[in-house]
């Protein structure tokens, strides 16, 4: 590297910067280099390399771990766009391995089986940026206080059902709107009730926005789902099982990319939603019990 002496890597600005670059885009779960190329061809702004999509993890049960490095490297070699990979909640050694592999973003993910029932990873200790899931504003701010550079809704991964992601986005952005109306003394109460650091709550009150980008994940299966998430305030979307568990992944992937860009344009949404074949079947929330919900993992 020919950068000058004053150059520094792994700063918060550089790490949050990549999250800025992914805005307005679609990050797609892929399990093979072939799928990664389909995703890139369709206009994905990044791929998430994993061994099983959430729908299969849900079906198979058992312990879900970090993916095989060989498989992550094969996906890295097959595309130009950033490659993300998942580590278990609190499993900092998996994150160290992913950083050593040169992945561009680590997802400390509730879709995998948690490794620590109390502590999340100290994400400031890493050069690679992290994204974490959240169901509400307090959880989101706790993850930022641990060094997360991007927050995503948890949704309920692998269900093809957007209802949980909507709940999480409504909760997060609704509370942000309320905080911007709060006076200085009310912010103490907000911090207490959210169980979040006061300086971050004050930052939201002052700037009117969350400290890092907020993306949507969990249950996106159609172009309309993506546009709904964006209109609710998400700045980009993750699509897990929704693409490669559908009848015809390539056109659906492209349609979701276009819907994410043109999320406020119903004419374009109507055009890109046509003739995509069957989406993934999906699961109603009343068909899974509490113990099977991924979103309750994380603290």
């Amino acid at each position: 590297m020919s950068s000058s002496n004053s150059s520094s890597v792994g700063t918060l600005r550089v790490k949050r910067g990549l999250a800025e670059m992914l805005k307005g885009g679609v990050i797609m779960d892929v399990v093979t280099p072939e799928q990664a190329r389909v995703a890139e061809d369709a206009g994905a702004c990044a791929v998430m390399a994993l061994e099983r999509v959430p729908a299969d993890i849900r079906r198979d049960g058992g312990v879900a771990r970090m993916s095989d490095p060989e498989m992550i490297e094969a996906i890295k070699a097959s595309v130009h766009i950033p490659v993300m990979a998942k580590a278990r909640i609190g499993y900092f050694v998996e994150a160290q391995i992913l950083e050593a592999l040169g992945v561009d973003f680590v997802d400390e993910s509730e879709v995998l089986t948690p490794a620590d029932e109390k502590h999340h990873i100290d994400k400031f200790a890493f050069t690679v940026p992290f994204v974490c899931g959240a169901t509400n504003l307090g959880e989101a701010l706790r993850r930022v206080s641990e060094g997360a550079c991007m927050i995503r809704s948890k949704g309920e991964a692998g269900t093809g059902n957007i209802v949980e992601a909507v709940r999480h986005l409504r909760s997060i952005f609704g509370d942000i709107r309320k905080i911007t109306q709060a006076d200085a003394s009310e912010l103490f109460d907000w911090a207490k009730n959210l169980q979040a650091p006061l300086p971050l709550v004050q930052e939201i009150a002052e700037t009117g926005k969350f400290p890092v980008p907020i993306f949507c994940a969990g249950g996106i299966a159609t172009p309309a789902d993506a546009a709904l998430a964006m209109q609710l305030g998400a700045e980009a979307v993750f699509v897990g099982s929704g693409i490669f568990k559908s009848d015809d992944p390539a056109p659906r992937a492209k349609a979701i990319v276009e819907a994410t860009t043109h999320f406020r344009d119903p004419q374009i949404l109507a055009k890109v939603s046509r003739g995509l074949g069957a989406p993934m079947t999906g699961i109603g929330m009343d068909e899974i019990n509490e113990a099977q919900k991924f979103a309750s993992r994380g603290w």
């Binding site: 590297m1 150059s7 520094s8 890597v9 700063t11 550089v14 790490k15 950033p82 040169g102 973003f105």
Partner: peptide
């Protein structure tokens, strides 16, 4: 890649 991203 991202782990090489820098400011200067």
């Amino acid at each position: 890649r991202q782990v090489d991203s820098f400011e200067s």
